[in-house]
Amino acid sequence: MPQLHRSSPSTATRSEEKRRNLLITASELFLQQGYDGLSMDAIVAAAGGSKATIYRYFGSKADLLVAVVEYLCEDFIINLKQLDTSGVELTRGLELILEELVAVVTSPRHVDFYRLVVNGSAHVPQVGQTWYERGPKIWHQLIFNLLEEQRHRGLIAANSSFSELPPILFDALFSHLTTRTVMLGQTCTAKAFAPMINELIDLVVRRLKAP
């Protein structure tokens, strides 16, 4: 009976590390040059190795872009995942989430990333879906979880219906941020958006206030 050949843990670790290094290099190049302006040859030249290696790990250039978007989304929400809104007041919980959104979207790196997503989606539809699942949907769920906890604690009306509130709240701030940073090319600070955050939170609190 033929023996099965399995990769040793060290071999698997080296392979994962090589893939990650390729992904990091490709991410930076995609951010700098966009989807149209970047060739697989340029990635090979910057990362080393061979084109065959990149194809083995990621498949096509389109597949590589999807992997890059997934990787960058995870990078952008590192701090978000560490937020703990349990036990806080509704106002403070929303402040924490929305202030982190401002910090992410106003960063120069995110400006380049959003442009990459918009342009890349025109060529690779899966890019948009990946961005939504790994980006906005995460923020929506965090806001929903906060509201659900507030309801369980009796701090908002028990019969409140707020399933559509998280995307509405997220989109209101996100669209304004991207208009300012991406479309108008403005350099913005988190402090500049404090009045808008306060207004959005006030609207939510009044909408969900327990009787």
Score class of each variant (00 low, 15 high):
H152Q: 07
A45E: 13
R56E: 14
A157M: 03
E199R: 09
Y35G: 01
V204S: 02
P2T: 06
T130A: 09
A26P: 09
L65A: 04
V44G: 09
L22R: 05
A210S: 11
E164Q: 04
L4D: 08
V127H: 02
L98D: 00
Q141S: 11
L177A: 01
C188V: 14
H110C: 04
N21C: 13
I77E: 04
V204W: 03
S86Y: 10
E95M: 06
E99K: 00
A12V: 14
L64G: 04
H123P: 03
Q150M: 12
V127T: 14
H176T: 11
V102F: 00
Y57D: 13
L184R: 11
R180Q: 06
P9V: 10
A172H: 11
A45R: 06
G48N: 06
P108W: 13
R109Q: 09
F170P: 02
Q126Y: 00
P9S: 09
H176G: 06
L4W: 10
D41K: 15
Y57N: 14
L173K: 08
E17G: 01
L165W: 02
S60F: 10
Q82S: 11
F76V: 06
Y114D: 01
F58T: 02
P136Q: 07
L29V: 07
Y114R: 06
P195A: 03
R151S: 00
E28N: 15
V127Q: 13
V127K: 12
K191G: 01
L72D: 08
L80E: 10
H176P: 00
E74D: 13
A67F: 04
C73M: 10
T11D: 12
V117P: 10
F76L: 08
L38Y: 13
L38T: 14
I97H: 07
L65C: 05
W131A: 04
M183A: 14
F113M: 03
S8I: 02
I77N: 03
I201L: 06
L142P: 01
V118F: 05
T178I: 10
P166K: 02
L90N: 00
T187Y: 09
C73K: 04
E100D: 14
Q150C: 05
S27W: 07
R206V: 06
Y132G: 02
G49C: 11
P166Y: 11
L147Q: 00
A157Q: 06
K191F: 12
T130W: 11
Q129F: 06
A192R: 04
N159Q: 02
P195M: 02
V118K: 14
R206Q: 14
